[in-house]
Simulated scan of single mutants.
Amino acid sequence: MEQARADWVLASDARSVTRARTLIAQRLIGLPDESVEVVLLLVSELVTNAVRHGSGPVGLHVAWGNGTVRVEVHDQSPEWPVVRAVDRDALDGRGLILVDGLATGWGVMAGKPGKTVWFTAKA
């Protein structure tokens, strides 16, 4: 099966997290529910990070097929995300821990300007 792709540009606004989830869910129809739920959770985490810690509009790209989903989230901040240890009572700070634990792979690529954080998941 050939890979399908979709791209969007979202505002750097908290409402973009819900919008990103909706856009991705509309494209991944037909994939197993468990896979889609993992992708949507990780999309939420990366878009939230881009809105909270990045700058400029948020680029969202998804490609799927051949048993894999790849999502890329771009923002214009040059600051790379860092997986950090969090106190068990902390209210936030676990996003990249979730990405690291649930994705089949993830990383960061330098962009001009900014960076792109990506992950892959089983479709």
Rank of each mutant, 00 (worst) to 15 (best):
W8Q: 06
G67D: 05
L46W: 04
G114A: 09
V51F: 04
D89N: 12
V62K: 00
M1K: 14
V36L: 11
V47A: 05
G105F: 10
V62A: 13
R84L: 15
V58T: 02
G56I: 03
I29M: 13
D87N: 14
G101P: 07
A123D: 02
G30F: 10
V38N: 11
V71W: 07
G101L: 14
A123Q: 00
W80I: 07
V83M: 13
A90E: 15
D89L: 13
E34D: 13
L91G: 04
T22Q: 14
T22Y: 12
T48I: 05
D7T: 05
A90Y: 02
G95Q: 06
T120A: 01
R70Q: 13
S77V: 02
G67C: 09
H53F: 14
W8Y: 14
L46R: 01
E2M: 08
E2W: 07
R94I: 11
V99M: 00
V38E: 13
A110R: 15
T104F: 08
D33V: 11
S55C: 10
V86H: 12
E45G: 05
I24T: 00
A11R: 09
G65K: 12
L31H: 07
D89Q: 11
V86F: 09
V43Q: 05
D87S: 15
D33G: 11
A85P: 10
L28H: 01
E79A: 15
G105L: 09
K115M: 04
E2P: 07
D92C: 13
V82L: 11
G107V: 07
H74L: 12
L28E: 03
V58I: 15
T48K: 04
S44G: 15
L41R: 09
L23G: 02
I24M: 01
R70M: 09
A103M: 05
E45Q: 11
A123V: 01
R27F: 03
D75E: 13
A103E: 06
S77K: 05
G59S: 03
L10R: 04
T116W: 08
K112S: 13
V43D: 00
I97D: 11
I24K: 02
Q26L: 10
S55R: 15
G30V: 08
T104R: 14
V69I: 02
A90W: 05
V108Q: 08
G107R: 13
G95I: 06
W8N: 02
W64T: 01
P113T: 05
P32Y: 11
K112C: 08
A6T: 04
A25Y: 10
L28P: 00
G111L: 02
G59P: 08
V73F: 04
A11T: 07
P32H: 09
A11K: 08
E45A: 08
H53T: 02
S12E: 09
E45K: 06
S77A: 10
L46V: 06
P113K: 06
V73L: 01
D33I: 11
T22G: 09
L96C: 06
G114Q: 05
V82Q: 13
P113M: 05
R5I: 13
K122V: 15
I29T: 14
Q3G: 12
A25V: 05
E79T: 12
